[in-house]
Amino acid sequence: MLVVNHVSKSYGKFEALKDINLEFSNGVYGLLAPNGAGKTTLIKMLTTLIFPSKGEILYNGTNITRLGEKYRELLGYLPQEFGYYKNYSPKQFLEYIGALKGMDKKVLEKRIDDLLKLVALEDVATKKMKKFSGGMIQRVGIAQAMLNDPKILILDEPTAGLDPKERVRFRNLLSELARDRIVILSTHIVSDVESIANEIIMIKDKQVLYKGSIDEICKIIAGMVYETSIPYEQAAMFKKEVFSLSEKQEDGLLKIRFISKKAPEPTWTAVKPNLEDVFLYVYRDDIQESSAP
């Protein structure tokens, strides 16, 4: 069990995270937040790359900094900027990482073969990575994270660069892995975690905003999500009164999905909220700021 206990992180006067409290046991956790919310900071603390300014992170009751090697031995990590040596082949690179992970050579050889097969790179196992596509590199990254069969697997934006097919494969792989380990998945792509995460952690304004299962999280806006179709001319007026989640064109009308706290009108159809709705609603200020067209 991994426990984050009143953890804050600040750089000089700038505070990146404030009083974070979390608990992880086996299962997939989706760490959901827009870019810049402090996601990577939290992950870097969980991987001992940076240290909390206040508070502590405990694994089975012991501070992970104190555990040191014993903690990192259980760790598998795919950084957001996955670094590799262009002149190495995946096999050479994994051998190097295996050495860093202190793995036995014979076990390592077998494990590398298995993993390369698993991520469908066995054909290029001895080719230099110089010419690899982004997706292939990402798969090498996933392989290296799983090399030591980690008890805690932390993946920062793991699906970046993967095509839809690879994405599905990867999700299935994760849910299988998560049975007997902690998997922490950081992403801002909601669909990545929707289907597999047991629990979602949302961070906003340097703090944990919500933590719970998808159903629990969706309850935040239960009964407030509707869909309706309106003529285009009314769209601007309408959107001033409600919070629009998504819009699409249908039969010459605008089909709009939105949140409204007012009593519903007859033309509105109540729908079941999904994670994406929550995400858009919770981060509405951030999103409007950062993704104004």
């Binding site: 991987t47 790359l49 090697e69 760790l75 990590y77 950084p79 670094g83």
Partner: peptide
């Protein structure tokens, strides 16, 4: 990043 988060750390 990989080096420091591995067992060898």
């Amino acid at each position: 990043f990989l080096q420091y988060s591995n067992k060898t750390g």
